[in-house]
Write a protein that binds this DNA or RNA. Structure first.
Lengths: 229, 229, 229, 229
DNA sequence: CATGAATGAGAATTCATTCAT
DNA sequence: TATGAATGAATTCTCATTCAT
């Protein structure tokens, strides 16, 4: 976070440090993806080829390490959103985006329980803003029904998380089929939705309340393990 | 934590064993619903107003206690399925059922990570069979699109779990809106689904793989905490 | 111990009580013989067909129950000693006695760790006195070497315990062969024994020190389990 | 229990890992010798001046710690066997060996219930092989009667264990006298032994059956406590 | 700076003993 | 009086975090 790049004789050390940080993040990401957040710090350190102390130097807390990994994942999603913006068809772009988010979540199946709630606020805000734009553009184009709001998009992501968490070890298509179904619903105007969407405030609270839990030490788990095992 | 533990002799009159068992199950259910499965046995015992030993008398293992609670939840779902069968309109019955499952899952938001996987096999099989019937009847009536299979129903439940786990502390409508959306997709015949459903085998594996994880001691979490607290 | 046999209208209750006591002792004996002293009180109660409370009525402590069983075993040994006295050949009588003690110890293989140390002092004294007599008579007859003292007999019992504890589940001859060897040594006069025997005081201390251990709660176990299992 | 736990920062300087491992093994050995295997890990850790976690770092399980200590003891016995081989008189060498084994067993009186059964298979095999050689050589020399087999040697060790377990706190000669007696029997050819020895298979089973018990959690005890205390 | 050994609170589970019914 | 449910201290083991080397 504060990696000041001051030109100096100690640049080599700097590089070592940066390399180490990368190794740690890689190891953490992979560990979380495969085994979920319950993996011990020792296991992550081992995978990274460093000592636990080295991890704790950069990440004072396991929660911080998790947050760092989550940030990367959320950044992947942001990039997907940006890419989707380039699609000349707003409707296709929006759908591309939903699939991309599904793909990212599937890839990081072990991290889902903390996605959004533990991530860097700024990036999350960016993602939110992009999501909103993608949705509105698609709606303006008439590709997506008009009674849908941004909060429904967030809900779809949680929905996918539920499906992915359970099916990831067994199928890589299940979530796609589910999303397909959802998209079909999103593109039809006819039936009115009978329940109100989450308000923006509530959507924000979801993250906050979840965060509280974590803070209280009731550290959740990650319920996934990939196919090979 | 700082509740003075002065035991006045008449503070707790001992009741029937059955009553005690109820207290334990109630306490466990509430604890799981609110705090998830990570709650300590001690905490559950305290909530029930009994010693840990009392819990262990009926439930030799924490897993057994969890299973008992889960069984109750699954039984609620079974009852809902049975009730839905009575609806003269097969389509309405099926939708009733989906909402009922959502409602039950919402009520026991802390238990979702073990639903299905830890429950009594027989009851789960019963639920599955009833679900299948409800679906087929609704399809025969033309209320539900024909390319949907039972495994999609299971997927919908997982999807709802994802939504509920995140939104339960904040909204009791979010999952309903999501389900509404899904049902609209289920009732439309037009768009073909582009991805295959889970095979029955895979659907079975979902439970099994999850169960393995649990067995391996990577005890899942429960990611929810209700509004008040 | 204090079973006053006052003739009275409540004699039937008395009989029930006595029957219960027998059932408890039988169950305890069998349990200890088979599983050692670690068996839970619950298991013993179950075997006896009574509740734990009933056991605790007669035996305020597990140690007391153990002592009661041990007393019976020691009484068996006393009876064997008495019987051996009847043998017209003092030498044969003495050897008979050694074998008899071995047999009793083998039968109660799970109880050996407390034999002697936990038993009723009076009966132990009786056994000791009889043993002494049997030994002296055999020595007077010239059947047993003269440099052997009573304490050596006790030592032989402990020696047999060591052999039985290890071999009981596997062989019912091992201890006999060992005793045969010992007896051959006992009947030869030639080699002088190079080490002094335990003094009577020391022999007494063995029991006392052991008893202390027990009292301190470091309740030993019984290391045997019979062949069938 | 009531030792003020004020941690002055310089109270315990941290030493090498190796040194610590030694401290742990020493503490474990002493604890077992004195109090038997029932001592809590906490107690051992306290004696070693470390936290429980430190023990568990090297010994994932209490059983592993026990095994480590036992291995050392068995190694002592192996060394004694090797040394006995050097004795030009095969008969003396054999007797030396028996005494050496007695001495080792006496020193580790609290560990006897697991000797052989919990030890490293390879070393046990080595000891067995050496014992066999020592016996055969002595028999060839005519020093030991010919109807004795290796399994009888094992039996003698168990016999000594029985004597030592009871007498160790009270006398350091008792076992020697008993062994003296046994050796006199071993050196006489005249009387035939009336019972068959353990077969090699049975001797092997002794260890296995015992091991099973341990595995089943019926952790044996150690029935000894040294004189002082 | 990096390392990984040490820490110790916390979690599940057992079992002798007590006591309401 | 008998029953067996309830108790809770004690035990083994885990893991995030600290800190000597």
């Amino acid at each position: 976070m504060t990696d000041a790049t001051v030109a100096s004789p100690s640049r080599v050390l700097r590089r070592d440090a940066a390399e180490n940080l990368d190794k740690v993040l890689d190891a953490a990401r992979t560990s979380f993806d495969e085994d979920g957040f319950e993996v011990g710090m020792e296991a992550i350190a081992h995978r990274a080829g460093v000592g636990v102390g080295t991890i704790y130097r950069r990440f004072p807390t396991k929660a911080d390490l998790i947050a760092a990994v989550i940030d990367e994942v959320v950044a992947e999603i942001r990039d997907a959103a940006v890419a989707a913006m380039d699609n000349p068809s707003a409707g296709d772009g929006f759908c591309d985006y939903l699939y991309a988010v599904g793909r990212v979540q599937f890839t990081h199946a072990g991290c889902l329980s903390r996605l959004w709630s533990a991530a860097d606020e700024a990036v999350v805000a960016e993602v939110e803003s992009l999501s909103r734009d993608l949705l509105v553009r698609a709606q303006r184009e008439g590709a997506i029904r008009s009674d849908v709001v941004y909060e429904d998009v967030a809900t779809i992501f949680w929905s996918l998380q539920g499906v992915i968490e359970r099916t990831a070890p067994v199928s890589s298509d299940a979530w796609k089929r589910h999303l397909d179904l959802l998209i079909q619903a999103l593109t039809h105007e006819d039936g009115r939705l009978r329940y109100p969407p989450l308000t923006p405030t509530q959507a924000r609270d979801v993250k906050q309340v979840w965060g509280q839990r974590v803070a209280r030490g009731a550290v959740p788990l990650s319920p996934v393990r990939k196919l090979a095992d």
